[in-house]
Design a binder for these strands. Structure first.
Lengths: 341, 341
DNA sequence: AAAAGAATCGAAATGGTTTTCGAAATCACC
DNA sequence: GGTGATTTCGAAAACCATTTCGATTCTTTT
């Protein structure tokens, strides 16, 4: 019922609390005899150090914070999984908060985590975040910060990303290679860096191949919980606006699947009439018909990488050896399936 | 940089630490004058109580633990969202761990959380969990425990569930009402209570309507990350085994969608040849073609209810007014769509 | 003016662990 | 036996906030 303390062990053995503590941690200045006695009794009494006291003393909580825009999302839930798994390996626990794509909430969550005195924070920014003082605040407190996916280049912290621009370039190039000449783009919201980069990759691929860039072929979607419907709506609008588009590079798979559903409904054949490349390699992409060509975005891996980096920085700060921010870029690949020729 | 402490405020104002603490907490034995002074200085210095010290003193962490079989799952990620949101409202943070459907891991996670001295634990059991001593251990430590979805009836703790048996009965009845006479069932793994209950509801509906129960019409799937493929495989097998089945009640939407895909591939029409009812109301169910009739399983609501209950029990235990376990059953509904006539 | 009452404050213990530093005990060696 | 080196241990401070209880001051009443 009442947890065992060092004091109880000490009294039982008629030695001091200090010696018990040191015995359990294998300090060299405790004899083998007493070490054995202490350890034995600790085991039988099922002694577990009081985390609160340890935290207070060591000034660390062996806990990290994670702030993401949405939890119910295939990519983000994969990232969670990666972070939690990796953290557990190193004896860290993860507190998860959801910013709901709101800057205000994000600020509040960061505050909560700092108050909780987590050892570090991993974050993927809300779409609406344009001010970064709350993030700089984290760094000023001497806490490591790692951003992933939706990052802010301006914040001097480590980041885990994929080369969105390159991946988008590859995707668009693939459409061009399969004889598409008029290629549209369904892009994400305006602010997030990855949404911008994917757009730039798309544009560059067009120009590098001597194709004109036509802004009227770029459609925006918020990519929130209405993603599928946004895909349908954009597809509908596209068919109204342009009858000559033969390929689309779409910011994310769910939107792409929405678009494909709409095309299917309207008798537009994929890939014969319009070829489609998605982004993220959601598991449903390999399962619908036609299967969706897409860019693989390795969520679990990104989560693991983010924690690994955070862990290194936590250790570094502990040793007063601050570390320079590092941008870790994970490999992606184009996965060719039936939605392109 | 270095967080402000009560001591610093006290020295600045030439009063004692005790008075500062009491002033900030509006104790009646501090004059309005000093209260104002202290609060003013605390604000300008941006004082935040050291959580570690507060935890140690109050013996609570304002943190709860959550153990779920899988994070990357539409239902569970919805539950996470509900729990995290509700917890935040009450000033609680949530530590999430994944048991990976492994009993061994689940036991370890519980241990981790108890060591961390969380104020309570919410859990959905792994499929393989058949021994419950680790859960009873939580209760013996005087920590409240709430189970949801995959529960163990035998453990005397509060539970948040839906009436799986009734829901399954409704689903099957709906198939019968739409003139299905030979109805198969794709059930979940053998151990989980909800998988058993859904099977029993299916069976009872058949018998109540004078239809024979045929065990060969019941197919098992693990409902792990291969759910979609399991749906396809079971559908394939079903077509081989029986040519007279005209309806299926399927344990979960993703499996159902896999099955529908397979039927579609083989030229079997849904709902004309075979009608299908799924379970859980995954958002894709309303989006595929044909849209899937299903049972709504309110993940976010269940999460919220689970935390609310846990919160009540935490408060009760704090006041030494232990509370009797309660089973909270949330309402579900049959959502009729195109996959049934 | 004295006694009783109320208002205001602070010393100190508490929670449990970690770690420094000094003391005591043991051993080795001449 | 004395000197120095080595083991082995424990007192105590530190981490920081909370809370009890006693002490002091001020106000009121008789």
């Amino acid at each position: 019922m009442n947890p065992v303390t060092l004091k109880q062990i000490a009294e039982e053995l008629n030695i001091s609390v200090a010696t018990v503590s040191k015995a359990l941690k294998d300090y060299p200045d405790v004899s083998k005899k007493t070490k054995a006695l202490v350890k034995e009794l600790a085991r039988t009494l099922n002694y577990k150090p009081n985390t609160f006291a340890v935290n207070l003393r060591t000034r660390e909580s062996k806990t990290i914070g994670l702030v993401i825009p949405v939890i119910v999302h295939h990519f983000f839930s994969n990232v969670i999984k990666g972070i939690v798994a990796q953290a557990e390996k190193k004896g860290y626990l993860v507190i998860i908060l959801q910013s709901n794509e709101s800057y205000e909430l994000e600020k509040k969550q960061i505050d909560l985590l700092l108050n909780q005195r987590v050892d570090g924070i991993i974050i993927s920014l809300a779409n609406g975040t344009a001010d970064f003082t709350h993030l700089k605040h984290v760094l000023e407190m001497g806490k490591p910060l790692v951003m992933f996916d939706k990052i802010a280049k301006i914040v001097p912290c480590s980041k885990v990303v994929i080369d969105d621009r390159k991946a988008a370039y590859l995707a668009t190039q693939h459409l061009i290679d399969t004889r598409c000449t008029r290629i549209a783009h369904f892009r994400g919201a305006l602010l997030p860096q990855n949404s911008i980069d994917r757009f730039l990759g798309y544009k560059k691929a067009l120009l590098d191949n001597g194709l004109p860039y036509d802004p009227s072929l770029v459609y925006i979607c918020e990519c929130d919980d209405r993603s599928f419907e946004e895909g349908q709506e954009n597809a509908r609008q596209l068919l109204k606006d342009h009858n000559d588009v033969d390929g689309i590079f779409i910011n994310t798979d769910l939107v792409a699947i929405g678009a494909m559903t709409e095309f299917n409904k309207q008798g537009v054949n994929v890939p014969e009439d319009i070829a489609i490349v998605g982004f993220s390699n959601w598991f449903m992409s390999s399962v619908i018909s036609p299967t969706l060509t897409t860019i693989n975005q390795p969520g679990v891996q990104m989560g693991k990488a983010a924690f690994k980096r955070l862990y290194r920085e936590i250790k570094a700060i502990k040793k007063n050896k601050p570390i320079a921010p590092k941008v870790i870029t994970l490999e992606t690949e184009l996965i060719k399936r039936e939605s392109t020729k």
